[in-house]
Structure formats: C-alpha cells, structure tokens
Amino acid sequence: MAPNPNPARITDAMWWLWEQLHALEPRDTELGGIYARKPGYHNTRAGNAANNYSVRDAVDKRGPADKAAALDWTFKSAQRGDYRTIAKYMSRIIASGRDKRDPRLDGWRDIYGQADKDRHVEGWDCRYDRDITSDDSHLWHIHFSESRERVTSRANKDALLSVLKGESLDAWLKRTGAKPKPPAPKGTWCKGAYRPELRRGSAGEHVKFLQAMIGSPVDGDFGPATEARVRWYQKLRGIAVDGIAGRRTWTEINKM
C-alpha cells in the first residue's frame, strides 16, 4: 500500500484502517475518500462551522483539530447493483450496534451503507444507539464517522475491524481484555422506548441522549449544567421542576 498521502489532514491510524479494509476485499473495493473540504466528519474540526453536528459533542471537541474523522469504503460490485459483499459487512455493523452487550462501535459516530438487497440505505448511530438512514450514494459505499477524540487510536479501529471481520463479541472480549456493556439501569418505559430515571451523578449513553434532546452540552455526565437544563425544560413544559429526568420528563421529550 502507498504511504499516507496527506499526513497533515489524515492520521496514520486512519490510513492504517483503510489498508486493513482494502485487504479484506482487495479486488472489489477502493477508497472513496477520507479528508474533504465539506461540512461534517470528512473535514477537520477547525474546518467546520461551530454549529456543525460533527463538532458539537464533547468527544468531538477533543483530539487533533486539523485531522479528518471519516472514511468512505467503496464497493465496485455494489456500483454494478450487486449488493452481496457490501451487505455482508454492513449487516454485521447493524447487528453489533443492536447488541446491547457489544461496545466495539462505541468510539464511532455513525455508519451508513447497504445491508440487504433493497434500495433503502441502512445505518447505525453508534453514539445514540439507533437506526438511521441516508442518501442512496451509500448503496455502494460504507461511510464511517469516528469520534474525533479517537482519530489517532488504532485500538478503536481494530474494534471496528473485529465487527467487519465477523469476529464474535466473546472472542474479541477475550482477545482484548475489554468488558461488555453493563445492563441498562432500571427506569421507566416511555411510548415503547426504555428511558431510565436520570439525576445528578448519572452517566453514560442515556445521559448523552438526554443532553442532546434538551440542548445541553453532550458529554455523558449529568452534572450541574445538565440539571439546570432539565429544570429549564421542565418549567418550559409545565411539569414539576425537580431537575430529575423521570417519567413525566421523558414523556414530554418523546413528544418532540
């Protein structure tokens, strides 16, 4: 493989990931791009507007400001309408994301691609654990966006490769010494969606989701700023103001 063509904008770890991806399907795949001067993760943090979604969360405010945080993996067979190979890899991504024990995608933001035979693009929001979709260009390439704080990390990319290669979660946990995700805390159900009661001192992915929904800085820690924002939201919605995201608060959020 060629050396990193743009070390000023592409980390060596990201270029290494491309080499590993290409080695998986050397005859069928090519690099669709890493750095690009356009809004989003393909651009650097410094190259984005301050309100762009790729630079708002706390994990995207860390890491080098001058490096891209996305990669497009293009499948020539999918460009011809044969989705078997791209679907093999993308379906593994979706399965990993939906597995509540599997932490291997936690360092990634979102991943889009074709996971079956139809013409609807599948995707997974790795940060907020939800299905997503995108435009039909992702029928022939898989787009990976990485948390900007992880762009220099090979371990984060190795975790992604473990999923793409079809390694079982248990085998990866044994190989790396990592731990599975803990079970979700007890909480409440809100219109078909599990929402735990969150208060000062809570932390984790549910807190990140809450913060994103109420417009609080997203860092996964329920501190004074998040509590103040919850109180503001409760007052706005006309419910009891206690700074705790419980059943009534989640019910109001679910209306958004």
Rank of each mutant, 00 (worst) to 15 (best):
residue 96 S to K: 05
residue 146 E to M: 14
residue 162 S to T: 03
residue 18 W to P: 07
residue 222 F to V: 04
residue 91 S to H: 06
residue 187 G to Y: 00
residue 17 L to M: 10
residue 174 K to H: 12
residue 84 R to K: 14
residue 205 E to N: 02
residue 210 L to V: 03
residue 218 V to A: 04
residue 140 W to Y: 11
residue 194 Y to F: 14
residue 195 R to C: 02
residue 241 V to H: 01
residue 39 P to M: 02
residue 228 A to M: 04
residue 29 T to P: 15
residue 240 A to S: 01
residue 192 G to C: 11
residue 46 A to S: 11
residue 175 R to F: 08
residue 164 L to H: 06
residue 75 F to Y: 07
residue 203 A to E: 01
residue 223 G to P: 04
residue 157 K to A: 05
residue 117 K to L: 10
residue 134 S to V: 07
residue 154 R to L: 02
residue 137 S to L: 11
residue 248 R to F: 04
residue 111 I to H: 13
residue 2 A to H: 08
residue 72 D to I: 11
residue 2 A to L: 09
residue 203 A to W: 00
residue 165 K to N: 07
residue 133 T to C: 12
residue 113 G to L: 13
residue 122 E to W: 15
residue 111 I to W: 14
residue 95 A to V: 08
residue 18 W to I: 08
residue 61 K to F: 00
residue 17 L to C: 09
residue 147 S to A: 07
residue 56 R to T: 00
residue 42 H to R: 03
residue 116 D to K: 03
residue 104 R to A: 05
residue 225 A to R: 10
residue 69 A to L: 11
residue 139 L to G: 13
residue 98 R to A: 11
residue 9 R to K: 15
residue 244 I to K: 01
residue 106 D to I: 00
residue 82 D to P: 01
residue 125 D to C: 15
residue 18 W to H: 08
residue 150 R to W: 07
residue 218 V to D: 04
residue 81 G to M: 03
residue 50 A to Y: 05
residue 50 A to H: 05
residue 104 R to G: 05
residue 90 M to Y: 14
residue 206 H to T: 08
residue 201 G to D: 04
residue 77 S to N: 08
residue 184 A to H: 10
residue 160 L to I: 10
residue 131 D to W: 09
residue 46 A to W: 07
residue 199 R to H: 00
residue 78 A to V: 10
residue 220 G to E: 10
residue 251 T to R: 04
residue 6 N to Q: 15
residue 73 W to F: 13
residue 173 L to N: 05
residue 250 W to I: 04
residue 159 A to R: 01
residue 153 S to M: 09
residue 57 D to C: 11
residue 255 K to M: 15
residue 246 G to I: 00
residue 180 P to D: 07
residue 1 M to I: 08
residue 115 A to K: 07
residue 113 G to M: 11
residue 10 I to L: 11
residue 180 P to H: 05
residue 18 W to Y: 12
residue 85 T to V: 06
residue 244 I to S: 02
residue 98 R to G: 10
residue 28 D to E: 15
residue 64 P to F: 10
residue 135 D to G: 14
residue 252 E to N: 05
residue 126 C to I: 09
residue 59 V to T: 02
residue 229 R to P: 03
residue 66 D to T: 05
residue 61 K to H: 02
residue 146 E to L: 14
residue 143 H to S: 12
residue 66 D to Q: 05
residue 186 K to Q: 15
residue 69 A to P: 10
residue 46 A to F: 08
residue 148 R to C: 04
residue 79 Q to E: 05
residue 61 K to C: 02
residue 241 V to W: 00
residue 60 D to Q: 06
residue 225 A to K: 09
residue 206 H to E: 10
residue 185 P to S: 13
residue 233 Y to V: 00
residue 237 R to Y: 08
residue 138 H to I: 12
residue 102 D to H: 14
